[in-house]
């Protein structure tokens, strides 16, 4: 940028303050990193960094508390909404969010998320659905598509044996305690902006004392899916989001 240096420039888009300098430990092309950045941007914009607490899950994002420039802990597998409930009940002035994968939230942690949603806990839940257990090596998740091959469904997910893909927002939308609920992707720049807006509302649902806010982000796991990052991102758009329809299910934030 030799010549550009001579020009007067302003930074248009840069790494948000609410991320630490630590490099993400995720695989190349993993969408976790995009969602991390969006959450951090929202925290920056809402000016809540100094009172935000992160509850990280078990899974690839177990290290999430290393990446966010906020106080944090890591909950037992699936229990993040219960940990967040304890924090928020004891310190309602804090902003508490959980960051959970599909194994964490949609399998082992279904009880915790359902009851936190039903109680209308003033917490924000970022739910990453990438159809597999990433950390443990790409095993079948409750969100795995029918026919999809994983290390524990080597011949493809069979609905007779394994049941059907689980749709969390469709299930939670009936709960009156939920104040914001959406499913998005980060598969192209426009979707990224939509996801960010949804995340912001999920935080506002908490901050404005309306109820639980949850955003499910359909995310690529190139490693778990055996695809290159561009191909995996395209697959989210063309295949994955056909099973899991994106949209806003509940919006009391307005």
């Amino acid at each position: 940028m030799k010549n550009a240096e001579k020009l007067k420039t302003v930074v248009f888009l840069k790494r948000p303050e609410s991320l630490t300098d630590k490099e993400f430990t995720y695989c190349p092309g993993c969408h976790h990193g995009i969602v991390h950045r969006l959450v951090a941007e929202v925290i920056d914009e809402l000016k809540i960094r100094e009172r935000t607490i992160l509850v990280a899950p078990v899974g690839c994002s177990v290290f999430a508390y290393e990446f966010f420039n906020v106080d944090g802990t890591v909950a037992p597998h699936g229990r993040a909404p219960a940990v967040a409930t304890g924090m928020k009940r004891a310190r309602p002035d804090l902003v508490v969010f959980t960051y959970q994968g599909d194994g964490d939230l949609a399998a082992i942690g279904t009880s915790e998320i359902i009851h936190a949603a039903n109680r209308g806990e003033r917490i924000t839940v970022i739910f990453i659905n990438n159809a597999v257990y990433g950390m443990t090596g790409g095993q079948m998740a409750p969100t795995t598509l029918i026919g999809m091959k994983t290390t524990t469904s080597p011949y493809g997910r069979d609905e007779k044996r394994d049941g059907y893909p689980i749709h969390i927002p469709e299930m939670l939308k009936e709960f009156k305690g939920v104040a914001f609920l959406a499913r998005t992707t980060v598969s192209d720049p426009v979707e990224v902006i939509r996801t960010k807006n949804a995340i912001k509302k999920a935080f506002l649902a908490q901050i404005n004392d309306l109820g639980l806010g949850l955003v499910e982000v359909l995310s690529a796991c190139p490693t778990g899916w055996g695809m290159d990052p561009v191909e995996a991102t395209r697959w989210v758009k063309e295949v994955f989001s056909k099973e899991y329809k994106t949209g806003v299910f509940v919006d009391k934030v307005k």
């Binding site: 020009l7 993400f24 092309g29 995009i34 192209d188 720049p189």
Partner: peptide
């Protein structure tokens, strides 16, 4: 342009986008 598309999809926040002013 700078449209920021690259920044938005970058999973490693490796990109900084600058606007040239004046």
């Amino acid at each position: 342009p700078p449209c920021g598309f690259c920044y938005r999809v970058c999973p490693d926040t490796a990109i900084t986008v600058f606007r040239i002013v004046g």
